[in-house]
Amino acid sequence: MSERGFDANWSAQPLIEMQGVQLSFGSVQALRDVDLAVRPHEVTALIGPSGSGKSSLLRCINLMAFPAAGSVRVGGRETVRAVDGKHEFLLGEPERNQLRTHLGMVFQHFNLYPHLSVLRNVALGPAVVLGHSREDAQDEARLQLSRVGLAHKADAMPRELSGGQKQRVAIARALAMRPQVMLFDEATSALDPEMVGEVVDIMRQLADEGMTMIAATHEMDFAREVAHQVVFMADGQVVETGPARQVLEQPQHARTRQFLDRVLRHAAVGGVDPAPSSS
């Protein structure tokens, strides 16, 4: 994998590590003293209310945001270190770009390129970033599209797809870079309920294949059934981390319980528990 420039040990334990990470936007503290460790081939579900810092955490991993304090390691290599609001790059800009080729990212709003066909959306990265020939890039794109069940949409334009299909293309686009880790930022939150399943199924399939994943999600079923580790965040802090069952079924902190109560009640269609919340 060293041909991409960012040389790392992709079986490092942990594969991704954050220590004491802080991130602020002006006076808003998006992340406060966040620690995180992700082991290879494991799935981490990030849960927490809106604004709790899930996106911010993911963006510190792929260096789309730079911490004000703390350090981040990927594949055993420190990628950024910051003290007192000043970050020190441990990677030059080309190497930061190369790092990102290993970290696939999937967004809430898909962010497909509307001026390119589905095939070119997926093939662009391998062609432009990895320098594959046009044929190789398109072969790779077709392969990844069939992996998400959309080979037949290769020539469609993004606007002709449903939300679920768009998100599957976005996943194929990330996979076409052959990443070592996949980051999902609420990949199903913008979807109509009937389309959530098709995207979750693909995430599940990737997990089964051993992909290391970090997924900010509101899908508690996914967290419970697929995640090895669940991280609950609130107000920019990691409140609770642990094996999925433990955090979801025996949460240690009141905030976690409160959050789970609320989310699970919402999820119970038909109102299994009609008791009004006291909080």
């Binding site: 789309m64 770009n97 990102r100 080729t101 696939g104 990212m105 962010n111 432009v128 970033v129 686009r173």
Partner: peptide
């Protein structure tokens, strides 16, 4: 941002 995230 999506483009930067695949390494462009």
């Amino acid at each position: 941002e999506a483009a930067r995230c695949i390494g462009m």
